[in-house]
Amino acid sequence: MQELTFVYDADDILDRPIHVGVVASGDLEIVMLPDPGRPTATIALRTSVDGHGARWQRVLDRFFEHGAFRARYEINDSGATPGMVSLRLGQARELAATNPPPAVAP
C-alpha cells in the first residue's frame, strides 16, 4: 500500500459530502468532504499498487484542469485502471453538481 497526497486550486463550493465506489479489486472509493474555507482540493490517496505516483499525478492533473470543488478528497484505491479512476472522479463530480441530490444512494 502506498499513500500519496495531491493539492489543486479550487473555486467551486461543495454543499454536501459525496461518496462513490467501493474498495474492491479494480475499483476505488472516493469520499468528498466540503472544505469551503480553503481554496484547494486536497487529495489523500491510498492505493494498493505501489510505484504509480506519476501516473496518478497525470490522471488527477487532467481531471482538475477545468476546475475543482473546495473539498477534502479521501481516495481508497484497490488497483483501478486510469480509465476507472477517471470514471469514478467524474461520477463524484456529477453527483456533487446534481440538485436536488438523488434519492437513492450511488
Binding site: M1, V23, E29, R46, T47, S48, N76, D77, S78
Partner: peptide, 10 residues
C-alpha cells in the same frame, strides 16, 4: 488493515 498494507474502506 493499513498497518498490514491493505487499503481500508470509509
Amino acid at each position: 488493515l493499513p498497518r498490514q498494507g491493505i487499503v481500508p474502506q470509509s
